[in-house]
Design a protein around this nucleic acid. Structure first.
Length: 272
DNA sequence: GCAATTTGACCATG
DNA sequence: CATGGTCAAATTGC
């Protein structure tokens, strides 16, 4: 309650060599660009990814910084692979919350891929399935936070990474997709042939989390903030390689149709 | 007591 | 000089 500690100088000035280029540990931190040093490290392979659970990507991260960005209303969090020193894994990521929507969206920027074979994913124990359907359930829900009560199943606001690392628990696996992507397509009612993306680099047994916010205002789907389609599936229902048709009143999945719930979500039991 | 997170300082880059 | 990224001492939590 009382910040008694006076703000002392934190990092003592180290009269050693300037950090950055000179590596104290002799570990080449970044690709030293063997030739043509004029470009320096600039080609850091980075890829951006939107997700609702930036901390559950199947790897162990260690937070090493947090910074307030100029125009961003939320600070930016810096993570790097926990095995950086052990396995020389250069993988790092930076998480930034975009807005405090019902399910807050995060923009995760990954840099370098994991070279550490370790971290076979923090096993999503997911023991207590509060509101999640039984095994083999699939929930489709639209991100409409207006009108309806506070539904939006599990994954509350944001999960504290601390909690996650302690309990190694993750919310129910889910996948979100941008409606706009296939809405713009001529076949707006046809679902892509395969639901789950190819799972880039993580082990395929981990729940994939992918999402995009609808930026196009021309989405006739809803007049709400975002149109986010959220897929919830059990790990056993991984092969949702069936047809899915979304109608106005019902949604068809695997030949069966399910009605939309008043809150804009649909529950479809696959019966797997 | 140890290890991860916090948080301001330090540094690099534009 | 402003902004963003990293370091590391201090703090917090286990």
């Amino acid at each position: 309650m009382n910040m008694a500690s006076p703000p002392r100088l934190k990092r003592k000035q180290q009269p050693g060599q300037p950090y950055g280029q000179g590596e104290v540990f002799g570990l080449s931190p970044l690709e030293p660009a063997p030739r043509d040093s004029r470009k320096r490290r600039k080609d850091k392979h980075t890829w951006i990814k939107h997700t609702l659970t930036p901390y559950f990507d199947g790897h162990l991260w260690r937070k090493y910084g947090q910074k307030v960005i100029k125009d961003a209303p939320y600070p930016r969090l810096y993570f790097r692979c926990s095995y950086r020193e052990d396995r020389q894994c250069l993988a790092s990521k930076l998480v930034q919350q975009m807005n405090h929507d019902d399910p807050p969206l995060y923009e995760v920027t990954y840099t370098y891929e994991h070279t550490c074979n370790a971290a076979p994913v923090p096993a999503p124990d997911v023991e207590a399935g509060d509101d999640r359907p039984a095994s083999g359930g699939l929930v489709l829900s639209f991100g409409s936070s207006s009108g309806g009560a506070n539904h939006h199943h599990h994954h509350d606001t944001l999960v504290q990474k601390q909690e996650w690392q302690q309990y190694h628990q993750s919310p129910s696996p889910f996948l979100t997709m941008n409606l706009d992507s296939w809405n713009s397509s001529s076949q707006q009612h046809a679902f892509p042939s395969s639901v789950p993306p190819p799972a880039t680099s993580w082990s395929p047994s981990f729940p994939i989390v992918e999402s995009s916010s609808s930026a196009s205002p021309t989405t006739p789907w809803t007049d709400d903030d975002d149109d986010i389609l959220t897929w919830d599936w059990d790990l056993s229902t991984y092969d949702l390689d069936e047809h899915l048709l979304l109608g106005g009143d019902h949604t068809q999945l695997s030949g069966s149709s399910f009605p939309w719930k008043p809150d804009g979500s649909a529950l479809a039991n696959l019966g797997i």
